[in-house]
Simulated scan of single mutants.
Amino acid sequence: MKKTKIFLATAIAGIVTLVAIAADHIDAPAVQGGTSDITDFYAFQGENTSNIAFVANVQGLLGPGNDTQNATFDENVLIEFNIDNTGDSVEDLVIQAIPRDGKMYVFGPISPTQTGLNSTIASNAANQLSVDITAYGESAIVESSAGMMAFAGPRDDPFFMDFAQYGQIIAGNATSFNNPGADTFAGTNVLSVVVEVPKSMIGGTGTINTWVEAKRRQ
């Protein structure tokens, strides 16, 4: 139980840092307007407390209706969840998700063939599954295999930020956020990839660093 608490606290601390960096919502020049744009990353204990869930949201600011209905995962973009369970900030395990023909294929957790910016899809991983990508407005489709579960499809953007007030603070016209603030992302959607795995597949000492990357096929 003590290890579980340390594990979760470490994961959440990592999330706070990663959200601040990765929650760009299409304002990062390198990915502006691109299908590889990561809006947010979350990791948390599953409803089954023996599991941990990883969530990557991409393609933010999708309006309701046609914007979301027409949005699709890019088949040339790999979503890769990185897990460091030795404390050296280098991925020891990866979970990879890549779409193809209306399905999301998930591989891992598995040791990567190489670390860093380049990846090879682990199509021979012992742990793998595929799930139909849920269409906009439809009930969530979830598939499971060997204790893993996965979902892929549009979801309401969970990120809360009052950008108008933030702009006022940056401009020196205000010193704090309003309470309550205005949710800039209310009514907008993202494309989500959710993978839940047993903690026993993660291993390590009970503490992890975790981050997500979107990697485009070269």
Rank of each mutant, 00 (worst) to 15 (best):
A9Q: 11
A186I: 06
Y136E: 06
I141C: 00
S144N: 06
V190H: 01
A140N: 04
F73H: 11
A43I: 10
G65A: 01
L93R: 12
A214I: 01
I121F: 03
L191Y: 02
E75A: 06
N82T: 08
Y105P: 01
T4K: 14
S123V: 01
D183T: 08
F160N: 03
A53P: 07
A122K: 06
V131A: 03
F160D: 09
K3N: 10
D40E: 15
E80P: 00
L8H: 10
M201S: 04
S145E: 05
A71C: 15
R216F: 03
E196L: 05
A53C: 14
Y136N: 01
A152P: 09
M148I: 06
G108E: 00
V55S: 05
E213H: 14
T35P: 07
D132R: 08
M148H: 06
Q168R: 08
M149S: 03
T72L: 03
I95Y: 05
Y166Q: 14
G102W: 04
A13R: 09
A186E: 12
M1Q: 03
S36A: 11
P99N: 08
I15C: 11
N70D: 10
I6A: 15
G187I: 08
F107N: 08
D37R: 04
N118Q: 15
A30S: 12
A122M: 12
P109Y: 03
P198R: 07
T113D: 15
T115M: 00
D74C: 11
R216Y: 15
A97S: 14
S89R: 13
G206C: 07
F73Q: 09
D37I: 05
V94D: 06
A150H: 03
A164M: 08
D40I: 06
L93H: 07
S192W: 00
M1F: 11
A150E: 00
S200E: 11
G137M: 13
E143W: 04
N82V: 11
N70L: 14
F177L: 07
V58I: 15
W211A: 01
I98A: 07
N76Y: 02
V142G: 01
I26Q: 14
Q32T: 05
T120K: 03
F160I: 12
P64Q: 10
N178E: 04
I208R: 00
T184W: 02
V77L: 00
V131R: 01
I208E: 02
F163A: 01
D24I: 07
S145G: 05
A182H: 07
G203E: 05
S144P: 11
I202D: 10
D88G: 01
S192G: 00
M149W: 08
G187Q: 03
T86C: 13
R100N: 06
